[in-house]
Deep mutational scan, measured.
Amino acid sequence: GKELVLALYDYQEKSPREVTMKKGDILTLLNSTNKDWWKVEVKATANDKTYERQGFVPAAYVKKL
């Protein structure tokens, strides 16, 4: 199945390749080969529509579930 990670801290994206997350968010882990930056998929809701974004977050800010 898919691997999930838990956001340990809030993170505000600093570039278009990154994604914003809030502490407590559960994210889908896409790639953890880089030890510093993990690629995740974030589900977000805006205007009653759910959309998914993929991007990088600092590996130290998340932990595998």
Rank of each mutant, 00 (worst) to 15 (best):
G55D: 01
K63N: 06
L4I: 07
V57R: 01
D10L: 03
D10T: 05
Y11P: 01
V42Q: 15
K23M: 07
T45M: 12
V57S: 01
L27V: 06
A60T: 11
L29S: 00
Y51K: 09
V62I: 07
K64A: 07
T28H: 09
W37P: 02
S15H: 10
K14A: 09
K35S: 12
E13W: 06
R17V: 09
T45C: 14
Y9F: 13
V19C: 07
K64W: 07
F56I: 06
A59T: 05
Q12H: 13
G1H: 13
Y61W: 06
Q54K: 08
W38N: 01
W37C: 04
A46E: 13
Q54E: 08
K43H: 14
L65E: 03
S15I: 04
W38H: 01
E13F: 06
V40Q: 01
T20L: 01
L4H: 08
F56Y: 14
L29G: 00
V40G: 00
L30I: 13
N34C: 10
D36V: 14
A44T: 14
T20P: 06
F56W: 15
L29C: 05
K23I: 05
Y9H: 10
G24I: 02
L6H: 04
T20K: 03
N47R: 07
Y61Q: 05
E52K: 15
K23V: 06
L8T: 04
N47G: 14
V42L: 11
I26N: 01
T28M: 10
T28V: 15
E13V: 05
A59Y: 03
M21E: 00
D25V: 04
S32P: 05
E18W: 03
K63M: 14
Q12G: 06
E52I: 15
S32C: 14
G1T: 13
P16R: 09
I26P: 03
K14W: 04
A59S: 12
D36C: 14
A44M: 15
K22G: 04
V5Y: 07
N31H: 06
E3V: 15
Q54R: 12
P58L: 05
L27G: 06
T28C: 12
S15N: 12
K49M: 13
T33C: 15
N47I: 09
K49I: 14
K22C: 10
K39Y: 15
D48P: 08
P58G: 02
W38S: 01
E52R: 15
A7K: 02
G55P: 01
Y9D: 06
T45R: 11
P16E: 11
T50I: 13
A46I: 15
N34P: 04
D25Y: 04
L29F: 02
Y51A: 10
T33M: 11
L65I: 14
K23S: 07
T33N: 12
K43T: 14
Q12Y: 14
V40I: 06
I26A: 02
A59N: 02
L27S: 02
L65C: 14
R17K: 11
Q12T: 14
K2Y: 13
S32K: 07
V42G: 10
Y51S: 10
D48Y: 08
A44P: 07
K49N: 11
D10W: 03
K39L: 15
K49D: 09
G24P: 01
S32I: 05
N47H: 12
V42T: 15
A60N: 13
D25E: 10
K49W: 10
G1S: 13
E41M: 13
A46R: 13
T50M: 10
T33I: 08
A46T: 12
K39W: 14
G55N: 01
A59L: 04
F56G: 00
G55L: 05
V57L: 02
E13S: 15
K49E: 12
R17M: 12
K39R: 11
E41T: 10
Y9P: 00
Q12A: 10
P58V: 03
Y9L: 09
A44L: 15
S15Y: 06
Q12W: 12
L6N: 01
Q12N: 14
L8E: 03
